[in-house]
């Protein structure tokens, strides 16, 4: 925290002015699409089919009513919530176990494990899209567990996507929790799992929150696998939102309203928890 005040000396004018100019331009760049999204979602259809207007000719909440009937948005919403929610919880729990093992124990194959897990980050998603599809179909045929087209298959896929980064970040975080703490717990008669849940996890809350936010965003925003692995009943928002533009008319005001509605949960959650994210990254990933 001491670096918050980078220097005891007042910064020179050149620094202040260049900062003002840079940050103003950047704010404009960042906010432009946000403004377009918000303002267009409140426009009547005529405003978004003709020439672009900075200001609506009249404000209307009509798009926010219509989005639910043009496509079954509520169903997609529920699907996304279930998929992203379950994937996040499972991913965090599994990442906590793995990171604890790597951070606190020495065992054969530890380095192989961490390197393999991390290297999956560089896999192009397209390489295992079709094989995974075949695996899910075959598991379904062999055991009767429907993975392809189901939420379960998507949950398994997404939770694995967020695992490598989550494990890596939590290893860094757990390493920063003093070992004396869990050794004291072990001496007091806690088992290794007791030490993990009573000592290490509480001390690593910022890191765990950061990982949860990351896992949820990964699952909420993924497009490629969602578009191949879902059907009409299990479709998520990532695919469902494209339903507004395949019709003869493109209801841009509704698309913008729907985009805003599906963004609110993640953006609000992200901004509320961003303090933890920075703290988690500081202690974990960038150390």
């Amino acid at each position: 925290m001491s670096s918050q005040h980078a220097s005891p000396m007042a910064p020179p004018r050149s620094f202040l002015w260049s900062r003002r100019i840079f940050l103003t331009l950047l704010t404009g760049f960042v906010l432009l699409p946000v403004y377009v999204m918000v303002s267009s979602s409140l426009k009547p259809l005529a405003d978004v089919t003709g020439k672009f207007r900075w200001l609506p000719s009249g404000l209307t909440l009509r798009p926010y009513v219509d989005i639910w009937s043009t496509v079954p948005l509520a169903r997609y919403f529920v699907n996304s919530l279930i998929v992203a929610g379950v994937a996040t919880v499972a991913s965090v729990v599994i990442a906590v176990f793995s990171a604890y093992a790597v951070s606190r124990y020495d065992f054969r194959g530890k380095r192989v494990f961490t390197v393999t897990v991390l290297s999956t980050q560089m896999f192009p998603g397209i390489l295992f899209l079709l094989p995974l599809f075949l695996i899910y179909v075959n598991i379904g045929n062999a055991t009767g567990i429907a993975l392809f087209g189901s939420r379960g298959g998507l949950i398994l896929t997404y939770l694995t996507f967020s695992l490598p980064f989550s494990i890596w970040m939590l290893i860094g975080y757990f390493d920063s929790v003093p070992r004396d703490l869990d050794e004291a717990a072990l001496v007091d008669g806690c088992g290794p799992l007791g030490a993990l849940f009573r000592v290490v996890v509480p001390a690593a809350v910022p890191g765990i929150v950061a990982v949860a936010v990351y896992a949820f965003m990964t699952a909420w925003g993924e497009v490629l696998f969602a578009s191949v692995m879902t059907n009409d009943t299990t479709r998520t928002l990532a695919v469902g939102l494209q339903g507004y533009s395949t019709l003869n008319d493109v209801y841009w005001n509704q698309i913008m309203a729907a985009s805003l509605v599906v963004s609110v949960p993640v953006v609000a959650g992200f901004l509320l928890l961003q303090r933890y994210l920075v703290a988690g990254l500081t202690a974990g990933a960038v150390k």
């Binding site: 533009s245 985009s259 599906v262």
Partner: peptide
């Protein structure tokens, strides 16, 4: 504010840019 583009779901953010890049409107 600066973190908003990162927090937005890809499809919601990119589809807004699609609208901004439209030829006529």
């Amino acid at each position: 504010l600066f973190l908003v583009p990162y927090a937005l779901p890809v499809y919601a953010a990119v589809i807004t840019w699609v609208f901004m890049f439209q030829h006529d409107n």
